[in-house]
């Protein structure tokens, strides 16, 4: 088998340790890289071979958990989703995500993101509370209804959209693209009846009207979610509700699940009856 050629790439990593100093500095590491190697692989290499004190978050290594968001060559990326080769530079600069407080090195505090996410009530809210608590039937939803918000469910809460957003950079109270996109996702869900509660927040001084459609959030999102689109559609929903142009939205009806389901398969017979039988046999 042909050996993969190795290329040395210099990694400049912004280091910060509040226990030692309030100032940040760049540390330089030379990493032998091969084709297909990601920035996260390089960081793991540094941690295992060059400097074990380097702090960064990682978990799934396949762009699902949203842990390894960081500023790579001045652009927010997921480190596991960025191959070193595609950067086409001999030096790779890695910094923590901007617009979020830094805890240590490349680890940022994501609690502002989660707090704002919680504020928009990211769950189904129904008027028929007893049905929610003790469901008697299913909430029917057509594939078209699902399609209307499906892409916004792919958000992994990595914070990359917030770090790319120019409004979040200047206004720390701004709800941000992540929370507003989730606000739209739940308000559009045909099973949901909580738009009145969420619209109060979206219509506030720190809400949707501060977005000036730079589109940086959608450009940066590693999951292909388009928060800028969600924000524009949410603006349209808010104006339509305020001017009563769309009228009252109908909630999805309850559908009784089919009574005659397929018969259950009988429980399989044990190949060995029990311990006693087995011992006797």
């Amino acid at each position: 088998m042909k050996e993969l050629s190795s290329k040395n790439i210099t990694f400049k990593i912004r280091r910060y340790n509040p226990e030692k100093s309030n100032k940040t500095h760049f540390a330089t590491f030379v990493v032998p890289t091969t084709r297909g190697m990601t920035v996260l692989d390089a960081l793991l290499y540094i941690k295992e071979n060059l400097d074990s004190t380097l702090a960064f978050r990682t978990s799934c290594r396949m762009a699902i958990c949203g842990s390894c968001g960081m500023l790579i060559n001045k652009y927010p990326h997921l480190a596991c989703h960025t191959q070193i080769e595609e950067l086409k530079t001999k030096t790779v600069t890695v910094e923590p995500l901007p617009n979020l407080p830094v805890i240590k090195d490349l680890v940022v505090d994501l609690s502002p993101l989660f707090e704002k996410h919680k504020l928009v009530k990211p769950y189904i809210i129904r008027a028929d509370r007893p049905e929610m608590d003790n469901p008697t039937a299913e909430f029917a939803q057509s594939p078209e209804e699902l399609e209307s918000f499906l892409q916004f469910t792919y958000c992994v809460k990595c914070g990359i959209c917030i770090s790319a957003c120019p409004t979040s950079a200047t206004d720390k109270q701004f709800l941000g693209p992540q929370a507003l996109a989730q606000c739209y996702r739940y308000c559009t869900d045909s099973r949901d009846d909580g738009e009145r509660e969420r619209f109060l927040l979206a219509d506030s001084e720190n809400g949707i009207w501060h977005c000036h459609l730079a589109g940086a959030c959608s450009d940066a999102c590693p999951k292909g979610v388009d928060p800028a689109l969600a924000i524009q559609l949410l603006k349209r929903q808010l104006v339509a509700r305020a001017t009563n142009l769309l009228g009252k939205r109908e909630l999805t009806p309850l559908v009784t699940p089919p009574v005659h389901s397929k018969p259950k398969l009988p429980f399989p017979q044990f190949t060995v009856n029990d311990k006693t039988d087995a011992r006797e046999g």
């Binding site: 619209f199 219509d203 506030s204 001084e205 809400g207 009207w209 603006k235 808010l238 104006v239 509700r241 305020a242 001017t243």
Partner: peptide, 9 residues
């Protein structure tokens, strides 16, 4: 919905 009216305007 005050801000919605302001934005629409």
């Amino acid at each position: 919905m005050k801000n919605a009216y302001l934005w629409l305007a």
